[in-house]
């Protein structure tokens, strides 16, 4: 009897494993095929954080995140505009992926191990760091002055799981005020509710270019983090496809598209990837 039982269990397990393999390898169930059949990509992104994703004065979504989605749409349909945007708040990024509201999300999403347990990240398309923005005519000259001030200063920061920890890594004694959006954070700095705003280097540069002579960079950057798009877990075919598109945007045939976007939003010209030995294995 015991033998028969073992045999039965083994048979069931084999059958389950076989069917699992079968469904995983079936292409027609992949998101890739669904998106191709649908004829447009559903991209989850925000609409209130330049230069990543924001509504320009011509009422169109623009930014570096949006361009990453456009790169994928171009790869799918030969047309970067075949996208339906789902304008979501930061909190909605993971729920919208898991419940299939979007095909992928590109919304300055920091890669963390916790998030990677809930969704699958693509390869990173940007490496972000944090800097400190000060008023040009403020009481503190630079990072050293801020650090010397100890707990006399308040630092405004965009709401984030790691926000407090992040600020304290650079300014251990400073008070931290978290804000829902970038504009409120800058407002805190403008109105004197905060002495400095800790924000991403990319946003900081973009803001300083837009408001010349009003602000200054405290001259210290820390906290490297990778930005990746996210997809719903369990669809290797779709993940591989998006990875390939992003990878070739940064190193291959779509490099001009990626480089032009980078120049537009971060004001920096990228060097063409070195021809010959693949640059990513250097």
């Amino acid at each position: 009897m015991a033998f028969l039982k073992k045999l039965a269990v083994a048979a069931v397990m084999t059958a389950t494993a076989a069917s699992a393999v079968g469904s995983a390898s079936a292409d027609e169930t992949s998101k890739l095929q669904q998106v191709l059949d649908r004829g447009y990509l559903i991209l989850g992104t925000g609409s209130t954080n330049p230069p990543w994703h924001f509504v320009d004065s011509d009422n169109k979504l623009k930014g570096f995140d949006v361009d990453m989605g456009r790169l994928v749409a171009k790869a799918l349909f030969g047309d970067p505009d075949k996208i339906e945007y789902v304008q979501q708040s930061g909190d909605a990024r993971i729920p919208n992926l898991v419940t299939d509201k979007v095909d992928m999300t590109c919304q300055f999403m920091t890669v963390t191990a916790e998030r990677a347990q809930q969704i699958e990240f693509t390869i990173p398309y940007y490496r972000e760091g944090v800097g400190l923005l000060l008023m040009a005519n403020g009481d503190y000259a630079d990072y050293d002055a801020l650090k010397a001030a100890g707990d006399d200063i308040t630092v405004a920061v965009l709401q984030n799981v790691y926000a407090e920890e992040m600020v304290h890594a650079a300014l251990p004694d400073a008070d931290v005020d978290q804000y829902d959006s970038v504009d409120l954070m800058y407002q805190a700095l403008n109105s004197g509710r905060a002495e400095a705003a800790a924000t991403d280097q990319s946003a900081l540069r973009w803001f300083m270019v837009q408001n010349p002579d009003r602000y200054k960079d405290a001259g210290y950057a820390w906290n490297p983090q990778s930005y990746s798009c996210g997809v719903k877990p369990g669809d290797q075919r779709w993940l591989n496809f998006v990875n390939t598109v992003l990878h070739e945007g940064m190193t291959g045939v779509e490099f001009p598209f990626y480089a032009e976007s980078f120049k537009t939003w971060f004001g920096e010209d990228l060097d063409t990837p070195k021809i010959g030995f693949p640059v990513e294995y250097k």
Binding site: S47, T48, V55, Q88, S89, S181, D183, Y186, Q187
Partner: peptide, 24 residues
């Protein structure tokens, strides 16, 4: 409804603010 991404008056306003920084 702005939280789930419906662009009603508040989210439309926030979008303008994010571009112009005229939050007040």
């Amino acid at each position: 409804l702005s939280i789930i991404g419906v662009v009603e008056l508040l989210l439309a306003t926030q979008q303008v603010i994010s571009r112009t920084y005229l939050s007040l």
